[in-house]
């Protein structure tokens, strides 16, 4: 009696684990399916090349795509050097148990756990008001040139948000460089700096690239950090200067779903935009995975 009961318990439990796993797959499936079915019809050449028209009930999303691309490029320019330098310091120069290294690691870990809306508020307070406002006070007295939401501040805010991603994957790449390479370089008279420049960093490029792509994928999908720091509801022009505002896919989705004058008319465009954003992030993640698996096989071969 009790034995068969425990048997039933066992079956139930294993069934539950399977069910839980399937729920996750089903969720993803439903989301993707729903978006694809409803958004597919909207995708057209005009959708990609035109600006929103008639209060976002017609037209395309070109300015949002343009703004997103510009944003993540600026973000990458800011985050990759900073992240790579930090990772090189942590892995190549700092002693593993030094106070600074531990402090940096704790900071990186905590940075990764901060909610993105906090980054948005931080960006507004620090970059827009403190840095931007400071620049205005110094160089443009009486004017507002930099002390306002702008693409540069949004990009920098996103850079802070994605910094942990770049640091962690760069460190992983540095760790994957066999110590034998470093020793060989030292034994041939290479200094630490030359060894890092000629051997360690070139060998880590794919890993650094993976980190950059993951950061871009993460950054492209974030809305909260850019809401207060530079993204605009609607702009009749494309951003051309660093202190211009810009439109962005994620924010555009938010705006269309909350501020539309005609919900029914906006719906297909909304779905189309979501599909575009989804495809964009999927492609970026896929790229990162491909590069990573390529490095792994290359490294296996090197052993």
């Amino acid at each position: 009696m009790s034995r068969s009961f425990s048997k039933i318990q066992g079956y139930t439990f294993s069934g539950l684990t399977l069910l839980a796993s399937l729920v996750i797959v089903a969720m993803l499936g439903v989301i993707v399916w729903n978006i694809f079915i409803n958004g597919y019809g909207t995708l057209s050449w005009g959708f990609f090349t035109r600006a929103p028209e008639q209060g976002m009930t017609a037209g395309g999303i070109f300015p949002a795509i343009f703004g997103t691309v510009a944003l993540v490029i600026l973000m990458t320019i800011a985050v990759v050097p900073l992240g790579v330098l930090t990772a090189v310091y942590l892995h190549e120069y700092a002693k593993p148990d030094s106070v600074i290294a531990r402090l940096v690691r704790a900071a990186v870990g905590n940075l990764a756990g901060v909610p993105s809306i906090v980054f948005g508020l931080f960006g507004l307070g620090f970059f827009v008001h403190f840095v931007g406002g400071g620049i205005d006070k110094l160089f443009y007295p009486g004017e507002v040139a930099w002390g306002q939401p702008a693409i540069i501040w949004a990009a920098l805010t996103l850079a802070v948000l994605t910094l942990p991603v770049v640091i962690v994957s760069t460190e992983e790449a540095l760790r994957a460089v066999p110590n034998e390479y470093r020793e060989a370089s030292y034994a041939l008279g290479g200094s630490k700096w030359l060894t890092i420049r000629k051997i360690v960093l070139p060998h880590s490029v794919p890993g650094i690239l993976t980190g950059a792509i993951l950061a871009v994928g993460r950054g492209a999908g974030e809305v909260a950090p850019i809401m207060f720091t530079g993204a605009a509801y609607f702009l009749p022009y494309l951003p051309s200067k660093l202190n211009d505002q810009f439109m962005e896919l994620g924010y555009h989705i938010f705006v269309m779903s909350t501020q539309s004058p005609d919900v029914e008319k906006t719906k297909p465009i909304l779905y189309g935009t979501v599909l575009v954003l989804l495809i964009l992030t999927f492609i970026l993640n896929l790229l990162a995975i491909l590069i990573r698996s390529k490095i792994r096989t290359a490294q296996r071969r090197a052993r």
């Binding site: 066999p178 034998e180 390479y181 060989a184 034994a187 008279g189 051997i199």
Partner: peptide
Amino acid sequence: ALRRKVGMVFQKSNPFP
């Protein structure tokens, strides 16, 4: 300079990639 005078070959062959 020292290591250019005193070269080394390791146990595990470690050519650079």
